[in-house]
Design a protein around this nucleic acid. Structure first.
Lengths: 155, 155
DNA sequence: ATCGATGCAAAGCGTTTGCAGGGGT
DNA sequence: ACCCCTGCAAACGCTTTGCATCGAT
């Protein structure tokens, strides 16, 4: 969430946050996973697994695409990253751990974060009875996902 | 949109609506496409291409899966159906032409329509300046997509 | 009669898996 | 030393494509 300024500051440096989150989820902290995480944190866009592979290869020339996929899986499982599958093409990955919204280009499938505060109550605002109404029908609501769609001018 | 009662009544019977929409988009109206459309309109759930194939096969035993994919493409292109790609598995298809929201089961990837009125102004309500702000940065907003996430109890 | 649509099979793309060897704890 | 992780290649699931034939207009 870009504009949000009242969030707690990151208590741990990135490397420590990575290690503790991975280990808490039962994964080891390896060079490959650190390189994938560093790249994800460094870019504005939300790259595909192939994008990550091409970038990380410059630092670790022997890394394989399968390892990138497994590193991304470990990061997602450790809640350090999110997997975005709404488009037609390959999945995209996002390391911003605060809940937030996305803009998606319907032409290129590119994704960007939106500079708008995330509203945890949005579903209730649509219809205050929706969540309890759904629960009665066997739907247990855990969250929601909002994507703004449109065209992103190529520059 | 299940609960919406103030929408215009369908002016044309389903078969005519199908034919005119397909032809307007430059597609022919064939038995296979009609069978796919009829099935999509008949079910509550949002089936995958494979689901459609298995169902339509009972009416047209010689239809192929490739034809189902091409029929679905024609229906989507003719605005008679929508392709839902947000999950991890195969795409799902939806023939309800009114804009609406979905519930998605994070376990099974099943999708259902939500009985809540679609709000065209929702993005403005999040932040009245968001759309013009995005336009200044080269993002041209055309719409949005909202999915409620949760668990759907198996019955 | 024309030209798009069908059905079949093969290829395509993104992703996952099996496995032998390597590296983190 | 243990066991997880890596890198390679092969398999996988979903979707698209090439092509000869069929069928809608």
């Amino acid at each position: 969430m870009i504009l949000s300024t009242n969030e707690p500051p990151p208590c741990l440096p990135r490397a420590e946050r990575l290690r503790s989150a991975l280990e808490q989820a039962g994964w080891r902290c390896t060079r490959q996973r650190a390189a994938v995480f560093d790249y994800l944190c460094a870019v504005e866009s939300h790259p595909t697994a192939e994008d990550v592979y091409q970038a990380v290869r410059r630092r670790l020339p022997k890394i394989s695409l399968a390892t990138v996929y497994k590193a991304l899986e470990a990061l997602v499982d450790s809640q350090l990253a999110e997997k975005l599958t709404s488009g037609n093409g390959p999945a995209r990955f996002d390391c911003h751990h605060q809940a937030h919204y996305h803009f998606r280009c319907v032409d290129s499938d590119e994704v960007r974060d939106l500079p708008v505060a995330y509203d945890p109550q949005l579903i209730d605002k649509l219809d205050p009875q929706l969540i309890s109404h759904l629960r009665q029908q066997g739907f247990h609501v855990t969250g929601y996902r909002l994507e703004v769609l449109g065209h992103l001018q190529k520059t």
